[in-house]
Design a protein around this nucleic acid. Structure first.
Lengths: 223, 223
DNA sequence: TGTCGTTTGTGAGAACAATCACAAGCCCGG
DNA sequence: CCGGGCTTGTGATTGTTCTCACAAACGACA
């Protein structure tokens, strides 16, 4: 009965369910319970049910969910029934790795263009594509209907590159540069920041270490 | 007054503030207001103040925060006063990019070892380190006091690699493999999943597209 | 057809996060 | 030493997400 307001937290988990369902489908499973799906996705069963309920009532009580049907519904909801064209800007170590990454095409994301500003890199072939100069961005984005821009530049160039992408009509940006980019509110930016992730892990390590040494100190004091 | 219970959401933002503060310090700024810091970090000022208040009262009313002092406090809170040793498992495209990534060492994360199982890769030098066989993991983790494991293997190997890391004593794992890994609850796992990020962007693209075509249909019906 | 075991879908409540709004406190100029 | 402008720190409020718990609905089987 819910019209259409899928929570962000749910949207972020749908791809995880999708992957689990693909595995189940390959294994020949016809149906799956929320409990089994929850185990595969690493969450709890109630969350799975609530998440799936936002898509509609696609389960059967006493039985579970039809794997194929659910696969289709999630695929549709995520907009994966069509191929999205993407461009990578910044062909350094990370840009190259992304350009060669097989996981994108498997999910219907076609890397359609690569850009850089370094003359030493332009013209080079990476992952089957020729690296273009950033100045060609706008034309190529328009011609190739590129919908998603991936920023893998050094941080100081990220804002400018993001602006160029937006200027070219891109409404979705995935930012790997360790920098905050500000764009118009109708543009969707997601960031992946490797060193932030490590710093969060560091916080927890430091904390358990601190607890351990406090306990040790306490022990030595005979407390 | 708050003892010590920094919310996860705050912890995740501290590295962003840290980066902004480093820029300010380089620019010679002595103090910064929550408003300015908020702009640099891409959040709002109230959130900055609340986040920082969890660390203690390090600001001065009417003035702002002392840049250097705040830098030190966040660095300490995140456990970045010490260098953490990390190991990368899986030296494919992504593993290589990570091994060569400069951003880690800048933040005090030293990549101390690389592992793979492919004989063609073992022995190769990547980013100044020799790739070792996964079987050497336990010894090297112990000897080099490696605290963080980075998993960059294909998804089907991620769980086993994570288990080996945990068995070797690693308590923090950064997982780049598109797979769910289950480990003991005292081990911290963070995941970075590139194609999930694209799928989330796809969801929003699809949604705005759907709205646009609904509007168009409505217009043509003369509604 | 009725009963039983199973599993969904969802209201209700708890936990967590974001935001608001303002008193408290600081600096400075007179 | 006082008043005004500014900025922090934080209660209070609102919004979002998670979890619980159970009625409703299904299949199977007698």
């Amino acid at each position: 009965m819910p019209n259409r307001a899928i929570p962000d937290a749910t949207v972020a988990r749908l791809p995880v369910y999708l992957r689990a369902l693909l595995e189940l489908a390959e294994g020949g499973e016809m149906t799956v319970s929320s409990e089994d799906l929850a185990n595969l996705a690493g969450v709890n069963a109630a969350k799975v049910r609530k998440d799936l309920s936002y898509l509609g009532s696609y389960g059967t009580r006493g039985v579970g969910y039809d794997v194929e049907y659910l696969l289709y519904q999630i695929t549709r909801e995520l907009g994966l029934t069509q191929d999205w064209h993407t461009a990578i800007v910044g062909i350094g170590n990370l840009g190259r790795a992304l350009a060669s990454y097989k996981g994108f095409s498997e999910r219907g994301f076609r890397i359609a263009a690569l850009f850089d500003v370094d003359e030493k890199v332009i013209g080079e072939e990476v992952g089957g594509l020729i690296v273009r100069h950033l100045d060609e961005l706008k034309d190529i984005v328009t011609d190739d209907r590129i919908a998603i821009g991936i920023v893998a530049t050094p941080p100081q160039n990220a804002q400018e590159v993001a602006e160029r992408l937006v200027d070219a009509g891109v409404k979705s940006i995935l930012n790997f540069a360790p920098a905050v980019v500000n764009v118009a509110p109708d543009v969707n930016v997601r960031k992946v920041d490797l060193s932030i992730e490590l710093q969060i892990l560091s916080f927890h390590l430091q904390r358990t270490q601190a607890i351990a040494s406090a306990r040790e100190a306490n022990r030595q004091l005979g407390g």
